[in-house]
Structure formats: structure tokens, C-alpha cells
Simulated assay, not measured.
Amino acid sequence: MTQVRGHWRRNANGTLSWVRAHSRGAAAAGGAGGILLVIGLFVWGGISNSASNDVRQPQVTVTRSPLSPAHAQLVEALRAARQRSGLSLEGAGRRAGVSAKEVSDIETGLLVPTPDDVTGLSNAYQLSPDEWTSLVILQSSVH
């Protein structure tokens, strides 16, 4: 007979049930209590999850306010510069020292870039000093 620590077991329906510490091989030794415990947890886990599946979750719609004109210009300028440079979001992020998600969030207007972000992206896109200056001016006017 082998002593087994408590552990999680995945049920047939994909849910997880906690199985308390027990002895493996208990049924062969005449103690079926461990097996009944496992079967009970399996059935109980299935019943509790099937009941929770009947509960309707409320529909949530997330909206955001439109971008300010300066923010929209900055977003479009940064996206256009990245596309002109031929970089993917991952490549731009790697060169600028930020994540691809951050580049995406900046280009979609979810995140307002810091001056350091604008400088890093400008360097990654190999923009001219005039282009960098116009981006910094746009960034400073975004609220």
C-alpha cells in the first residue's frame, strides 16, 4: 500500500477536484473508502460545475472615448512610420526596447507614449530629426 499526498485531479468534464491524501491500493487491501472518496469528489465536482454553467453572465461592453485630434495624429504618424520602416510590432518593440503589446497599445491609442517611447520608436524607425521633432511636439500636446 502506497501513501499518496493530496492532489488535484482533472475530471472528465474538464473541472478540477481536490483529492485528499489517501493510500493507493486500499481497495485491494479491503478498504474501499479511498475509492468512494475519489468517486464522490468526481461526482460532486461535476454537479457543482453544471449548476454554475446555468448561471447567465452579464454582457459587458467596453467603450472608450474618441482620441483627441493630437493623439489621433500621433497614433497615425507612429503607425505610418513603422509601416514605412517595414518593421513588425515585435521588431519595432525589440528595437525600441519595449514589448510588442506596448507598441500595439500606442498605435491603437490605448496608451499615450512617453517622450522616451517616442524617442525609442523614432530611433527604431530611423526617422529624421525633423520627423522626431514633430512627433515630440505631438506627444507633448496629447493630454
Rank of each mutant, 00 (worst) to 15 (best):
residue 132 W to T: 14
residue 67 L to A: 06
residue 69 P to H: 00
residue 44 W to R: 08
residue 30 G to L: 04
residue 63 T to G: 09
residue 91 G to Y: 08
residue 95 R to T: 09
residue 13 N to W: 11
residue 60 V to N: 02
residue 30 G to A: 04
residue 33 G to T: 06
residue 45 G to C: 04
residue 1 M to Q: 07
residue 143 H to D: 13
residue 57 Q to C: 02
residue 39 I to Q: 09
residue 89 L to A: 11
residue 21 A to S: 15
residue 136 V to D: 11
residue 129 P to E: 14
residue 113 P to I: 05
residue 83 Q to N: 07
residue 99 S to A: 10
residue 102 E to S: 10
residue 114 T to S: 15
residue 61 T to K: 10
residue 126 Q to K: 14
residue 73 Q to I: 00
residue 52 S to A: 12
residue 3 Q to D: 11
residue 17 S to I: 14
residue 1 M to K: 06
residue 108 T to L: 11
residue 131 E to G: 00
residue 17 S to P: 00
residue 21 A to T: 09
residue 108 T to H: 09
residue 135 L to T: 08
residue 85 S to R: 14
residue 125 Y to V: 06
residue 51 A to Y: 08
residue 93 G to L: 10
residue 26 A to V: 01
residue 64 R to W: 02
residue 51 A to V: 14
residue 125 Y to E: 06
residue 114 T to H: 04
residue 106 I to Y: 04
residue 22 H to R: 15
residue 9 R to M: 15
residue 76 E to I: 00
residue 26 A to S: 15
residue 18 W to C: 03
residue 127 L to S: 03
residue 100 A to D: 13
residue 139 Q to A: 15
residue 103 V to M: 09
residue 110 L to R: 15
residue 66 P to H: 04
residue 72 A to K: 09
residue 127 L to D: 06
residue 68 S to D: 03
residue 12 A to G: 00
residue 139 Q to R: 15
residue 38 V to Y: 07
residue 84 R to H: 10
residue 96 A to Y: 07
residue 109 G to R: 02
residue 75 V to Q: 11
residue 26 A to Q: 07
residue 9 R to D: 12
residue 4 V to Y: 03
